[in-house]
């Protein structure tokens, strides 16, 4: 039996700012994880990652990150992604300065 596919989002860093970004269904790069496209199919995930890789003039280091469906869009499955969507814990820098990402 095939193993169940863990849902994914495509994430990267913005080329100029370095800020964490997520690929949306309508092919934008959002700073907000809740706007990301939650991918539930493995083949589709590979296609979307290739889409991202073609946008080298906008982003850097695209990869697939595990995520889970939440009430307000995708949520991180791992604490590393939770930090990426929030910012560092020693200062309210990064996304904490601009968007209201709650720390779990």
């Amino acid at each position: 039996m095939a193993r169940a596919f863990t849902p994914k989002v495509v994430t990267a860093n913005d080329l100029l700012e370095g800020d964490v970004v997520y690929q949306t269904e309508d092919d934008r790069w959002s700073r907000d994880l809740s706007e990301a496209e939650l991918i539930t199919d493995e083949a589709h995930a590979q296609v979307r990652l290739l889409d991202a890789a073609r946008q080298a003039s906008k982003i850097v280091g695209a990869y697939l990150a595990d995520a889970v469906a939440g009430d307000n869009g995708p949520e991180p499955a791992h604490f590393r992604e939770d930090f990426r969507r929030t910012g560092p814990s020693n200062y309210a820098h990064g996304k904490q300065e601009t968007s209201p990402q709650p720390r779990a």
Binding site: N13, G87, G94
Partner: peptide
Amino acid sequence: RLMNGLYLQLHAY
């Protein structure tokens, strides 16, 4: 960029 000390970290360069 690495030769010039520029890394990419979690939230920024």
